[in-house]
Every structure is written in structure tokens, then in C-alpha cells.
């Protein structure tokens, strides 16, 4: 197959990224810097959370079965927030799947390999994308309609209080690199097309796709950030950080699943099962 040149692959990935992800860094920054006519509703304690649930429930849980919504109201706040996180994750996994199909060569891979790449890649990609919705004080939620403070998330009871803080710490380091959406599109594609996931059958084909993305990423970063020549190696280091973040996250979720009365969405069960 014909190898697309650097600029066209970067452009293609950027367009697919803007098409498939409902939130992106440029949009999120508008909300986070207060440049919208309707600023996000700030959730910083139980009262504001309850108020937000009334206001945002249709946005947060637009696709949720009505039975789930009614039982949700009777559950404790930590369990409700855990469920919100799950639904947001499911939506992002769906978006990531569509984005992956737009990566040249991905859709032609063996279907089992596509599944494996998504299984291991989606949470790493999700946490890289989540950083766009974070600043040091909190996290943008519900398509920019709400902002949950970092302190409130830390104040939840254990183990739920341990859920988001490592993601904030990663996000602060990651956001310091000042990537834009065109950089992130290639970075997410590189996360997904990774030749060393367990159980892949056609490693060499995936490595060829990965090499081509990494090559384009390096050249794109040099032209998009000419003053930061170390950006590419710094970004490669983040791949290892993301893997560690996902390993710890998977352990925490499995722990919550065992010890708490919190069921896990079937799609997320598929991803976490026998992961690491």
C-alpha cells in the first residue's frame, strides 16, 4: 500500500481526531479559561454535586437506561461518581474505536489484533486525552457543562479518593508539554498502534504502522514546536508513564469491583479482564 507522506498523515489524523472526539483540547481550554458565555457549573461539595446531578443528568447520562437512573438516586455519592466515570469512559472508548479505524492500515489488521490493540491502548489514550480537560484545580465534565474540583475528588472516601489524583499528577506533567490537538492526534494513534501488546499475531505489520506514525509524529513536532527540540523524546517517555498509570488504575478498579457494591459496565469488564 502507498505510504502517505508526513503532512498528509498528520492532517488525516488531526481531521479524524476532530471528527470522532466530541471534546478536544482547543474546546476544553475555552471552558477552562472562562471564555464561554455559560461557564461550567462548579462541583466542589455534596450540595453542588446534587444540584449538578439535577442540572446535568441528561447530559451526563443521556444514553443511560432509565432503570439505572432511578436506582442511581438511592446510591451513595461515591458509587454515583464511579458510575458517571464509567459512562464517560464507555463513550470515549467508542470514540477511540472510530478514531483507530481511521489510522491507515489499522482496519486491514486481523480482527483479533484490532481487539488486542484497543484492549490495551484505550485507557492509555483515554488518560492522555483526559489531561486536556484538566487543570491543577479540577476536571471539566459533561461536555463542558460541569467542573469537578480536584479537592472534592480527593475528599471522597477511600478507595474512591485514590481514583483521580494520579491522573491529575500525570496531567500536570503532560500539559506542561503544551501539545495541541494536531500533536495529540498522532500521539493517540501511536498509543493504539503499539507492537508490543500481549498476544498480537501480526507484530511486524503493526510495527510498520507504528513506525510510520512515530516517524510522522517526530517530524510534526519539529515543525509545530521548533523551539522545543526535546519534545519528541519527552513525549515517548510519557508512553511509559501512561502504561504505569493504567496498570495502577486497573488494579484499583478491580479492587473496587471486588470490595464495593459497584458493578462494572460490560465493555469495561471486557477491557479489564486478564489485562495485566
Amino acid at each position: 500500500s502507498q505510504q502517505p507522506d508526513t503532512k498528509s498523515l498528520a492532517k488525516q489524523m488531526h481531521e479524524a481526531y476532530l471528527k470522532h472526539f466530541h471534546m478536544n483540547k482547543a474546546k476544553a481550554r475555552v471552558f477552562l479559561t472562562g471564555k464561554t458565555s455559560t461557564p461550567p457549573f462548579v462541583i466542589h461539595d455534596m450540595d453542588t454535586l446534587q444540584h449538578a446531578e439535577q442540572k446535568l443528568i441528561t447530559q451526563l447520562l443521556g444514553n443511560m437506561a432509565s432503570g439505572d437512573v432511578s436506582t442511581l438516586r438511592e446510591r451513595e455519592v461515591e458509587a454515583r461518581l464511579f458510575l458517571f466515570c464509567q459512562y464517560a469512559s464507555v463513550a470515549t472508548v467508542t470514540e477511540l474505536t472510530e478514531f483507530a479505524k481511521a489510522v491507515p492500515g489499522f482496519a486491514a489488521l486481523d480482527l483479533n489484533d484490532q481487539v488486542t490493540l484497543l484492549k490495551y491502548g484505550v485507557y492509555e489514550a483515554l488518560f492522555a486525552l483526559l489531561a486536556s480537560c484538566m487543570n491543577k484545580d479540577g476536571l471539566l465534565v459533561a461536555h463542558g457543562g460541569g467542573f469537578i474540583t480536584r479537592e472534592f475528588l480527593k475528599s471522597l472516601r477511600k478507595p474512591f479518593s485514590d481514583m483521580m489524583e494520579p491522573k491529575f499528577q500525570f496531567a500536570m506533567r503532560f500539559n506542561a508539554l503544551e501539545l495541541d490537538d494536531s500533536d495529540l492526534a498522532l500521539f493517540v494513534a501511536a498509543i493504539i498502534c503499539c507492537g508490543d501488546r500481549p498476544g498480537l499475531s501480526d507484530v511486524s505489520q503493526i510495527e510498520r504502522i507504528q513506525e510510520s506514525i512515530i516517524h510522522v509524529l517526530r517530524l510534526h513536532l519539529l515543525s509545530n514546536h521548533p523551539d522545543n527540540t526535546l519534545l519528541f523524546p519527552k513525549l515517548l517517555q510519557k508512553l511509559a508513564d501512561l502504561r504505569q498509570l493504567v496498570t495502577e488504575h486497573a488494579e484499583l478498579v478491580q479492587d473496587i469491583n471486588k470490595t464495593e457494591d459497584a458493578s462494572l459496565h460490560p465493555l469495561l469488564q471486557e477491557i479489564y479482564r486478564d489485562m495485566y
Binding site: M64, V115, R273
Partner: peptide
């Protein structure tokens, strides 16, 4: 792999099919 990842398979094979939430 297919048996254990039915929803991922479905998402990969059918772009118009939303995840059954």
C-alpha cells in the same frame, strides 16, 4: 478472544452501532 470481547468486536465491525448502554 472474540468470545471474551463481544462488544469490542461489535464496535470494530459496525461503525453505526452504538454501545448498548
Amino acid at each position: 478472544l472474540k468470545e471474551k470481547h463481544k462488544i469490542l468486536h461489535r464496535l470494530l465491525q459496525n461503525s453505526s452501532s452504538p454501545v448498548d448502554l
